[in-house]
């Protein structure tokens, strides 16, 4: 399961989406996430779906690769489905047994919430697929730069984020290795109830933390050796400047958001939910 988490994993390809300014992608992702909650009807969903698929096509990231990232959040999706399905009481009762009741409204909410969540995750992972973490943090750094005047250490936070992202796959691999090593020594990670299983994680977490600290130490030294001294006086390999394609992308996204808002609200087609 560990290797299936694809969030934070850059997928190298040559597409317009890859070349866009990270600030555009950040703002657009945020707008897209908000847009998912702006409509309540089927036309809205159709529009959001079309837009998402359009973006996926443009991104040149294989669909399979994107779906793989969803596997990690199956649990979260299940919980959402179950809660919405059984706890929403709205409309005609479709199924009733003992304490379980499924209503028409509940079913609809469950389905729509699941779709929203999936779109939410795909939308945000599309950003991370097409943007290298460094670009991403560059974008965040530049977007949040005004906060620097309020003595918020924007550069430092951005640097920490990009390093954290870089080390996620390494630490995951390490976890895997430690797990295998402990299993080889007779550690039982599979059986027992939740508490016992949580306890059996300790012999994995302790060495993992030790190694993470050691790595952090090494990396800090390597960074210093390469003359890293904070954000001041640093130039950028990829300085951020908006280009025509970035402006076009902003317009496309804003048009989509406005469109989805009006279509979702005023096109009298299909079922209304909530």
């Amino acid at each position: 399961m560990i290797r299936d988490i694809t969030i934070g994993q850059y997928y190298p390809a040559k597409s317009v989406l890859h070349r866009l300014d990270p600030r555009v992608k950040l703002v657009s992702t945020l707008l897209y996430l908000i847009s998912l909650f702006l409509f309540k009807s089927i036309p809205g969903y159709i529009m959001a779906t079309l837009f998402l698929f359009g973006v996926i096509r443009v991104s040149k990231v294989p669909f399979k690769h994107i779906v793989k990232g969803l596997r990690a959040v199956v649990m979260l999706l299940m919980i959402t489905v179950i809660f919405n399905l059984f706890l929403t009481r709205d409309g005609a009762v479709l199924f009733h047994k003992w304490i379980f009741t499924i209503t028409e409204g509940g079913l609809r909410t469950a389905v729509y919430m699941t779709i929203r969540l999936i779109y939410l995750i795909i939308g945000s992972s599309l950003m991370t697929f097409t943007t290298t973490p460094n670009e991403l943090t560059d974008g965040i750094e530049k977007l949040l730069y005004p906060l620097n005047k309020l003595h918020v250490p924007v550069h430092e936070v951005a640097m920490m984020m990009s390093i954290a992202l870089r080390f996620i796959p390494i630490l995951l691999e390490e976890t895997d290795k430690i797990m295998k090593a402990q299993i080889a020594r007779g550690a039982d990670l599979e059986s027992g109830n939740m508490i016992q299983r949580a306890k059996s994680m300790i012999p994995i977490l302790v060495p993992l933390f030790v190694s993470a600290f050691r790595r952090a130490n090494d990396l800090a030294m390597a960074m210093e050796a390469r003359c890293y001294r904070g954000g001041e006086g640093r130039t950028k390999m990829n300085p951020l400047h908006y280009k025509t394609r970035d402006r076009i992308a902003y317009i496309v996204v804003i048009v989509y958001v406005i469109g989805v808002f009006f279509v979702g609200r005023y096109v009298p087609l299909g079922i209304w939910i909530f």
Binding site: N134, L165, M221
Partner: peptide, 12 residues
């Protein structure tokens, strides 16, 4: 340095 993983800062 010795450890190749712990001295590469960039993701590309």
């Amino acid at each position: 340095f010795q450890n190749p993983d712990n001295q590469i800062i960039g993701t590309v």
